[in-house]
Amino acid sequence: MLRGTFTRRGALSAAAGVVGAGVTVRLADAATPHASHQHGGVPAATVDPEVNGFDPSVILRDFDRGKTRKLAGGRTLREWEIVASDKDIEVIPGVRYAAWTYNGRVPGPTLRAREGDLLRIRFINAGTHPHTIHFHGIHSAVMDGTPGVGPGEIEVGKEFTYEFEARPAGLHLYHCHAMPLATHIAKGLYGTFIIDPPEGRAAADELVMVQNAFDTDFDDDNEVYAVNTVAFHFMHEPVRVRRDELVRIYLVNIVELDPINSFHVHGNFFHRYPTGTSAEPTEYTDTVIQGQGQRDVLELRFPSTGLYMFHAHKTEFAALGWMGFFEVAE
């Protein structure tokens, strides 16, 4: 019995062999415009960054330190302007998703400060729903971006300036906290918030990897998984690093609708610094599990050149887009 239908699940008891006369379909080879242009399930190309207006590879190393000036007493003031807006983005070749964005990208800009800086974030809601920015960190209630507290939800066309001190040092998040919360996060309103310790960190090739996912058919289940939004992107555009150079990964899990996510690297091990709040690693491993909103700073060096895969070891997510390569060169 056949019951497979649009947005509904059904069962089919199928048998091998084909059927009678009707429509004739000639299947051309993979090089024709109508073939899927995929290789083993991985699309043969990634999404053109021009389509989305942002590039997952650029997001890796794109740190926004804001406009800065020194205040009386020598303290640094950092100022940003963040605009929420609606935007269609392509999350896997050929598939558009109606996202909500901070500054036109998913994830939003990676905001970076030093512990003790004064931060001022002017938030403008140019979207079509009320939004906020809720920062993880230590700050007053009125600056928390929570509905019903302080300014609460910022209405469409309105703005609010959040102001607080950068603390504690570590790897944090910011995201919309308007209700319904899962929807406002899942549609793309999130970003990475890094507070460097006063003494800084050792020089490294630093990479921001935001694990995210998209429920493209609105069935409360994600269909597409990625790092920095575009599924399989780093299969085509490997993360290029140098042999023996210290690589520091700011790993964030912002996937909604699934309780856990994970990161695994091939041919190597890394030191794990949970939330980046301690100078001492807690683990030396090749796989880390993260719950929703969890973050880890990972440090590693590749001793040999070549291609090394990284992916979710929740392998369903890997096969649905969350996989890529490091390309290690001299």
Partner: peptide, 21 residues
């Protein structure tokens, strides 16, 4: 097996095969 076709809008069409033979 569960087989899904995904359209350009992200919608999905599902069909299932029980006891493939």
């Amino acid at each position: 097996y569960e087989i899904r076709l995904m359209t350009s809008t992200g919608s999905t069409v599902d069909s299932e095969i029980d006891d493939a033979s």
